[in-house]
Design a protein around this nucleic acid. Structure first.
Lengths: 212, 212
DNA sequence: CAGGAACGATAACATTTGTTATCAAGTTTA
DNA sequence: TAAACTTGATAACAAATGTTATCGTTCCTG
């Protein structure tokens, strides 16, 4: 199944896709501002492998995950390459597409049966406009961006520094829920290795840990 | 030679290290705001391999390159791993360290004789404070962050998608000045391969292009 | 319930990449 | 200027990783 349709334009040059939910978690004092926009969200109860935004389409919705799991990926020579996983209470969109009204380089797809909320872009603009009058707003925006940027730098540095095995171990340590919930071939492409090699890595680690 | 000393605290949770110069290039109407702070910068005329910020130290300066070339790297098991190169009219700092007052994970070092300007953190704070009253400011900040985030996502995705040879070719196409000016072993570590392998890649490409 | 698809393990082999060592040319420095 | 260091190329070998194929299991779907 494929969802998401084009929407109104988004003139302001800001990018803040994670906003609604970071707000909720990190800045509870702004709850009243969010309440109004919750009602504009469209609730979806969908199965696994539902496409929320298709590569090449312009993103017109901000996606919030209430339940389930979603991945961001792109197609390369016919093969999926997963960029990131998202879970309960996280929000996402295809950033460049959402901000710049350009075709998305990525597809967004559920990988579990999920409950999703979509907020059309025009309400995101309205919300930002409302919030920008709040003194706390600037600080929030910065905090959110700092986290995002830090995340991507770390992902990038990990490829320069670590072997695939080390990246797998780090994932196991830092974000074990990903390994528990996500199919292995998605994780392989996220780690930048073939499915066969990830299988080898796991098998090697299992042997090393077998003390019985 | 090693420079940069600790400085005053930086309470505001914003991160915007590239500010002064993006402002200048992209938002010329704000030139008057910047003029004042130019005079607070410390000018340095230094040789190659001058360390502007040492791994483990807290960054207290924002670095602007007037002339020359700088790299951001970290040490991994005794080996340098280069994360990024910076050239004329670019600004940088060790982001997390500058913002969070924590030890820097990276070293900043000139790789050519360079003319550098350093702006102490307290003036950066003051500058942001001044500017935050400007209506254009929010847009600027967002634009700068969007560019940064997009850059790091692309770097990261490139490791998932491309072979080292493809990454080298992309560098050759998109940012040839890097290959022209930067020593090959720095480029190798930036591409995530050994110096020997980068040499092999070049040699293979040279053979493929030899039509004489 | 049956058939097919999706998923993961494994083997065998090919290719890529790393490691170590050597050499030559260019740079820096005492 | 001579010695020492830096840089880059190359060879030989080792290790890591990809590719293709097979198999068994699970899961989905009609």
């Amino acid at each position: 199944m494929i969802l998401d349709q084009k929407d109104s334009k988004f003139e302001v040059n800001h990018q803040c896709p994670y906003m609604l939910f970071h707000f909720k978690d990190q800045f509870p004092e702004l709850e009243p501002f969010l309440e109004k926009y919750r009602s504009y969200q469209q609730r979806l109860d969908v199965g696994a492998k539902t496409i929320l935004l298709e590569e090449g389409k312009v993103s017109g919705q901000y996606v919030f995950i209430e339940k389930g799991c979603v991945r961001l990926f792109f197609n390369n020579d016919g093969l999926d390459k997963t960029v990131q996983f998202f879970f309960e209470h996280e929000g996402l969109t295809s950033l460049e597409s959402f901000v710049g009204n350009v075709p998305s380089a990525f597809t967004i797809e559920t990988i579990e049966p999920s409950v999703i909320y979509l907020l059309p872009k025009k309400y995101v603009i309205e919300l930002i406009d409302d919030l920008s009058r709040e003194p706390q707003f600037f600080k929030m925006i910065m905090s959110i961006f700092a986290q995002r940027q830090s995340h991507y730098i770390n992902e990038f540095v990990s490829f320069i520094r670590d072997t695939p095995e080390q990246r797998y171990l780090k994932l196991l340590t830092d974000r074990p829920h990903i390994i528990q919930r996500v199919a292995q071939h998605y994780i392989a492409s996220y780690l930048g290795v073939s499915t066969v090699h990830l299988s080898r890595i796991k098998s090697k680690l299992a042997k090393g840990n077998a003390h019985f």
